[in-house]
Amino acid sequence: MENLWRLATGQDPNPEDYQGIQFWSNPERTGWLTKQGDYIKTWRRRYFVLKQGKLFWFKDPTTAASPSGVPRGVIPVSDCLTVKGAEDVLRKPSAFEISTPNSTMYFLADSDKEKEDWINSIGRAIVQHSRSLADNEVVDYDSSRR
């Protein structure tokens, strides 16, 4: 039933979002988080992998460790606007949110330390993969002063 819902709502990730990324090899961060569903607001425990500027989630670590594994979802961190704590919004401990221009996703970590570690890792990835100031967009403000 869940697979039909995911197909009907377009939640299945586009293969272009993960092809060529070996998420099973030397990821930047991995671990379990509980994620709130996008349309049906239930909470599901998923295994997350942060690699090459993308946050992938899987049903279990076995799928994430397999070269033939397909993620249940992908968030390109370059699309992320913020990653921050969300205990006050959700009224749940160890909660955090990731905001993109199109949505805000909510997550629960197993502890406050895990939450902070995920926020820091995702925050670093956002900075590393940000499109806001690419090298070719750097403006030399001194050259305009004459």
Rank of each mutant, 00 (worst) to 15 (best):
S78L: 15
G69I: 15
N3K: 14
T63V: 13
N102L: 11
G53W: 10
K84M: 08
P93S: 01
V89I: 12
K51Y: 11
P13S: 10
D79S: 15
R29N: 02
G53T: 07
T9S: 14
N3R: 14
F48N: 00
L50I: 05
W24D: 03
V77A: 02
N14P: 09
R29C: 13
Q11W: 13
G73H: 04
P15L: 01
P27N: 06
S103K: 13
K41L: 01
Q11G: 00
S66W: 08
L55V: 06
Q11F: 04
N3E: 15
P13G: 09
F58Y: 07
W57E: 04
N102S: 14
E87W: 04
S68F: 12
G20I: 07
E87R: 06
S99Q: 15
S99K: 04
V70E: 11
D88K: 11
R29G: 06
I21P: 03
F96S: 02
V77G: 06
K35M: 00
Y39G: 13
V77C: 02
F23N: 01
Q52K: 14
Q52D: 13
K84R: 04
P61T: 05
R91F: 01
D38F: 08
K35G: 00
N26C: 13
F56D: 00
R29I: 06
P61F: 02
G31K: 06
P15G: 09
Q36I: 02
F56V: 09
V70F: 03
T82H: 12
R91D: 12
D12H: 08
K41T: 02
D79L: 14
F96W: 07
R29S: 09
S68I: 14
L50F: 07
F23R: 04
G31H: 09
G73L: 07
K84E: 15
V77K: 02
T42H: 01
S99L: 12
T30A: 11
V74Q: 13
G20S: 06
D12T: 15
R44C: 01
Y47T: 06
